[in-house]
């Protein structure tokens, strides 16, 4: 694949690949634990879509980087400070309401992002995004259906999904943070400024939450998410204490048996 190499492109693709990879790894926890069998299968399939997207993005990031690292090297042989995903996706999620709220936030953002990236000047990124945008549309549908059902459901389900929303909300703003991004990457048309996605994404999320009879978190009605100031910044390699444990599990087989194939 021939392309003009824009400095910083590799880092940008790495960040988006890490988002998909860590979200996929967290969703995998639900396999055998979901409330019903159909949901077990659904979450596994959504995780699989994300894993496929992660492979494509990380493989391309490795090519652009030019240091001989393939997707496996990037997934299994980096340590926590070298990961660049948003903290939203790495945190533990053992409550079904939390999983669905987070999936709604992530998938709505990814759909808007991938729709734009399908026209990226970076051909490898455009190819992955052109496929992924169709897959995440199904993820949005699925998460929306559950958030509506739980939010506008029983007193207990409403309470729990509201609690989940309030807990996830402070982590949303990082999706729109562009402080980590090389301006050249944006100028060259590889990626849009993350902040440009804010009105559409928050508007779509707010519409679902309102229909689900959930109380909108502060700022959402105005299309605002809290400023990231003072928070951990995953895009800069600053992560929660929950990441090392998640990585240890994800990486243990590859590290115990380097180069093994099956």
């Amino acid at each position: 694949m021939t392309t003009t190499l824009v400095p910083g492109s590799a880092r940008a693709l790495l960040a988006l690949g890490d988002d998909a990879l860590l979200a996929s790894q967290r969703l995998g926890w639900w396999i055998s634990r979901a409330p019903v069998l159909e949901e077990d299968v659904a979450l596994a399939n959504i995780g699989l879509d994300l894993l496929g997207q992660a492979r494509g993005l990380l493989a391309r990031a490795g090519e652009l980087e030019g240091r001989g690292r393939d997707e496996d090297a990037l997934a299994f042989w980096r340590d926590a400070p070298d990961f660049r995903h948003v903290c939203l996706v790495e945190r533990d999620q053992r409550d079904f309401g939390t999983t669905m709220v987070r999936l709604l936030l992530l998938a709505t953002w990814q759909r808007e992002l991938y729709a734009r990236l399908a026209a990226s000047s970076e051909p490898g990124l455009a190819a992955v995004a052109g496929k992924a945008v169709k897959e995440v549309a199904y993820h949005v549908d699925h998460a929306r259906a559950w958030v509506l059902r739980l939010g506008d459901g029983t007193e207990e389900s409403h309470l729990r999904v509201q609690r989940a929303l309030d807990a996830e909300w402070p982590w949303v703003s990082e999706l729109f943070d562009g402080s980590w991004l090389d301006p050249e990457v944006v100028a060259a048309g590889v990626l849009p400024w993350p902040d440009e996605l804010r009105p559409t994404v928050l508007g779509e999320v707010a519409a679902v939450l309102a229909r689900a009879t959930l109380r909108l978190p502060d700022g959402l009605a105005d299309g605002l998410a809290p400023e990231p100031g003072g928070r951990l910044r995953g895009r800069h390699g600053e992560h929660t204490d929950e990441l090392p444990g998640l990585l240890a599990r994800m990486q243990q087989v590859a590290r115990a048996h380097p180069g093994a194939t099956w």
Binding site: E38, V41, A42, A44, N45, Y138, D141
Partner: peptide, 27 residues
């Protein structure tokens, strides 16, 4: 993508079918 109209049952041919899960045995 999310426009799904009357999926026909492959056994009896009826269009009176409903979705149980958006995600089945494979993606």
């Amino acid at each position: 993508v999310d426009l799904v109209l009357g999926v026909r049952c492959p056994r009896c041919g009826s269009t009176r079918t409903r979705e149980v899960s958006r995600f089945g045995s494979t993606a």
